[in-house]
Computed example of a mutant assay.
Amino acid sequence: MASGPGMDFESFVRARTPALSRTAYLLTGDAHLAEDLVQTALFKAARAWPRLSGDPEPYVRRILYTQNISWWRSRRHLTEQPLGGYDAPAAERSDPALRLSLEEALARLTSRQRTVLVLRYFEDLTEVQTAAALGIRPGTAKSLTRQALARLRTLAPELAELVGHPAAKEVAR
């Protein structure tokens, strides 16, 4: 359900918190941090709500993304918990080993790398949309995506088909 113009804050929170929570969990890899991240984003959005026009969701999501990176910079370490609490797509649920490998690899990426991959492949944003959400140039978003995918290939070669490794095409033939 998309939020719409004129939607009051309380309705927005009720309608969009589950989706925002899933994204926050993928960004942080920790249920408690994800909850804090959503609460922080909603608090900031509530303060700005009277000034928002149109769909408020992109604004709230941008707060999620940038706040997560800000927290990561202040902590200067990555969480060690796997990303096991989100509702995985059917293809991932059918192969637990693949899901575990993906979760472990994502947990070992930097926060920025994980964020750009979540935006590009979970949120299905374009490079331009990803860059706008993070407040960076599209070229930087493209570069971060490329670096993150390369690191995934190194960390988890068994995921080569998911991250577009040329060797995977050879194996598939």
Rank of each mutant, 00 (worst) to 15 (best):
A97R: 12
A48C: 07
P166C: 07
L152Y: 02
T79F: 04
A132M: 08
F12C: 05
W49E: 06
E80D: 14
E161P: 10
R137C: 09
S94M: 15
E103G: 14
A132T: 13
F12M: 01
T110Q: 00
A168G: 11
A24I: 00
R76C: 15
Y59A: 13
R16F: 00
L102D: 00
Q81A: 13
Q39V: 06
R108C: 05
T23F: 02
V118S: 02
T17A: 07
T66E: 07
A90Y: 14
A91L: 12
A150Y: 13
P89S: 13
E35C: 03
S143R: 10
Y25V: 02
A48R: 13
S101R: 04
V171S: 15
E80Y: 05
A48W: 07
P157V: 03
A156S: 09
Y25W: 04
L20T: 02
P138I: 01
F12T: 00
A46R: 07
L102F: 05
S3V: 11
V163C: 05
G4L: 03
E123P: 13
E161N: 14
D8H: 05
E170T: 12
E57Y: 08
R112N: 15
A141R: 03
V60F: 00
I136P: 01
R61F: 01
S101P: 04
V163G: 01
R112H: 15
K169T: 06
N68L: 06
L134V: 05
A19R: 10
R112A: 15
K169A: 09
R146A: 06
G29F: 01
H77P: 05
G164P: 05
Q39R: 15
R114A: 02
T115C: 10
T79I: 08
L134N: 03
A45H: 00
V116Y: 01
V38I: 07
L134K: 06
E103D: 13
E35T: 09
L162P: 04
Q39C: 12
M7S: 04
A132V: 11
L155W: 01
A46L: 03
R120C: 02
R120Q: 07
P18Y: 05
E123F: 10
H77R: 06
A19V: 04
N68A: 12
S143Y: 06
S101L: 09
A172R: 15
E10R: 12
H77I: 07
Q67Y: 07
A90K: 09
E127A: 07
R62Q: 08
A97I: 15
P89N: 11
S21T: 12
E57S: 12
S3G: 14
P58H: 03
E92P: 11
K44E: 03
L26S: 08
R73Q: 13
R51A: 15
P96S: 12
D87H: 04
E123A: 14
S70C: 14
L106G: 03
L64I: 09
P50S: 06
L52M: 04
Q67V: 04
R99G: 06
P50V: 06
V163D: 01
T115E: 07
L159M: 08
A24N: 03
P89E: 09
R151S: 11
L117A: 09
R47W: 10
S21H: 14
A88S: 11
G85S: 13
